[in-house]
Computed example of a mutant assay.
Amino acid sequence: MENEFLNKVEDNAVVRMWSEKMQLEKGDSLAKGYMSELCDFIRISVTQNEFRELRDIWACSDDETKQLFYQNYGDLPYLLDIKVDKHLFQAMAQFWNSVYSCFTFGKVDLVLTVEEYTTLLRCLKVQVDKTYSRAANIPTFVKKLMSITRMSEQWVIARIQQKGDGKCIPWVSLRDLIVAHPDVKKKVDVFALSIYGLVIFPKALRHIDEAVADLFDRLDKRVTPVLIILAETFKSLSACRRAGEGRFIGCAQLLLGWLHSHF
């Protein structure tokens, strides 16, 4: 059944060729003689973290804790209940136009916008005009985690791991901290950090990446994370399109939520 589905999807390559042909004829940013280096078909993976533990923690939280979370981080937990349909995602990826960073469906281009993603993020606290940017002099990963968790330097250092070219902290360490932390505010902060690391920016499975901690550390300044979320989405889709395969490491839940809002 799956192979039959994918064989039908392969025909969508004609959409990309039509799009590039029209761009050349209309005289826009594609140079004369442009030759596409993109493959005809993407085999994209949407391997996800397991959210059962996150859902269980949220379900067991009392009303006071939930209200505190809503006030500070919006209604992010709804993302935990969005089931990612890998076949739908595979089909959608075939329509990604890397040149213009949009989806081309027939003669219609659909663009992911800041306004739409701000709505999907469901957080009234962020301000669209306060864009996140990585500061020149930022605290170390250890210091950022100490600030977020209110745990000792020794506790943090003992749990940091190296994953590929970056540092991470395992989800299991944060899970145990959420369950046992005596400070409700810190419970909420660590739970929110976990959603950002496991759902919105799932680069390292079952780990929270250092870059996520840096962004999260700035959210209390009411900056918007939407531009970074969109940039990661564009970057990951285009990388998979160029290679013809790969794992999508953006937020699949938000992307599918956006797609459903248009259809």
Rank of each mutant, 00 (worst) to 15 (best):
V226H: 10
M35L: 14
T47D: 01
S261H: 12
G106F: 02
K143G: 08
A93E: 03
F89Q: 02
V108P: 03
R206E: 11
S61E: 04
A239R: 13
C102Q: 02
E20G: 07
Y78I: 08
T224C: 04
Q71G: 12
S19N: 15
S45L: 04
F5A: 10
V114E: 14
L76P: 09
Y70A: 03
L76W: 08
A243Q: 12
I208W: 12
L30E: 06
K235T: 11
G244A: 02
K187G: 02
D81E: 06
S101P: 11
K235C: 07
D11Q: 00
Q71R: 09
K203V: 05
D56G: 05
D176N: 14
T47P: 01
K144R: 15
N72L: 09
Q67R: 05
T113Q: 05
Y196N: 11
L237S: 03
M1G: 14
V46Q: 02
G164I: 06
F191S: 03
T118A: 09
V15S: 15
Y132G: 11
Y70S: 05
E37F: 12
W155D: 00
D165G: 01
P182A: 01
D75S: 12
L177I: 09
I148T: 04
I157W: 13
L110H: 14
Q162Y: 15
F248Y: 00
N3R: 09
H260E: 01
A231I: 06
S173H: 07
L145K: 14
N49A: 06
Y196K: 06
C251D: 04
I160M: 04
